[in-house]
């Protein structure tokens, strides 16, 4: 992911994983995936969320952590 082009998608994956990692460690009744999804809703534009949700369904989704992948499903 060194070049500027197409690194948008790769960035979304990387950012989602970072966010999921933080919430994985937290104490929360709702669980880390729900917290991650809330964070994405609060800070990402609808377009970014849509792209991310679609990405999670492709093979790029394999590079997502489990929490991040669950969060993508919750974005529906």
């Amino acid at each position: 992911m060194s070049e500027a082009t197409d690194h948008g998608d790769e960035r979304l994956i990387q950012m989602a994983n970072q966010i999921a990692t933080f919430f994985r460690g937290q104490r929360s009744a709702r669980g880390p995936a729900a917290e991650t999804a809330d964070h994405l809703k609060a800070f990402w534009t609808p377009d970014m969320r849509n792209t991310f949700r679609a990405l999670a369904e492709t093979e790029a989704g394999a590079r997502l952590s489990e929490v991040a992948r669950d969060a993508a499903r919750l974005l529906r």
Partner: peptide, 11 residues
């Protein structure tokens, strides 16, 4: 809905 941040704008 939230908008784009600077890095997102550039992406």
């Amino acid at each position: 809905e939230p908008g784009l941040r600077i890095p997102n704008m550039l992406d």
